[in-house]
């Protein structure tokens, strides 16, 4: 059975005195991350929209990574997965990650193929 709350976040660099304090700490962190996302979304710095990493805009990579970071803290601290057994944690987390990664891979590849068919395949779409 689970015992005490685990009160450290950021791999133990930030320790809280009690659970309520940790909740507020996580809220501040999530708010900061959201604020960064919104600011970048409005300003769209040219350096980030004009450089590409692995075929995707650097800005979009930042958005996706920050989203996963937010998802991690919501699941770990709000849904208290941090306090659950690691077997439950793994069953809950890795099942969707594995399936969704596969789904995304296959759908985006297919979509890119269709895009090329529209582009080069003598199909008129702009009329």
């Amino acid at each position: 059975m689970a015992h005490e709350h685990k009160l450290a976040i950021f791999r133990g660099t930030l320790n809280f005195k009690n659970n309520v304090q940790k909740i507020w700490g996580v809220l501040i962190f999530l708010t900061v991350v959201t604020a960064i996302e919104v600011t970048l979304g409005i300003t769209k710095p040219r350096i980030l929209t004009h450089s590409y990493i692995l075929g995707m805009k650097a800005l979009n990579w930042i958005f996706i990574i920050l989203t996963l970071v937010k998802a991690y803290y919501i699941a770990w601290d709000f849904m208290h997965l941090r306090d659950e057994k690691s077997s439950l944690r793994r069953a809950v987390v890795w099942t969707p990650i594995f399936l969704v990664a596969y789904l995304i891979f296959i759908l985006l590849f297919e979509a890119d193929y269709i895009y090329n068919v529209y582009k080069d395949g003598f199909i008129t779409w702009d009329f």
Binding site: T95, A111, Y115
Partner: peptide, 29 residues
């Protein structure tokens, strides 16, 4: 546990929607 079962399956449903959105978006990128 049953709530977690439901949430995992619901997460897959939403992932399906968002992946379909990505599909259409990449198609008309």
């Amino acid at each position: 546990l049953m709530m977690w079962f439901f949430l995992v399956s619901d997460a897959l449903t939403f992932s399906g929607f968002l992946a379909a959105y990505g599909f259409s978006r990449f198609k008309f990128i």
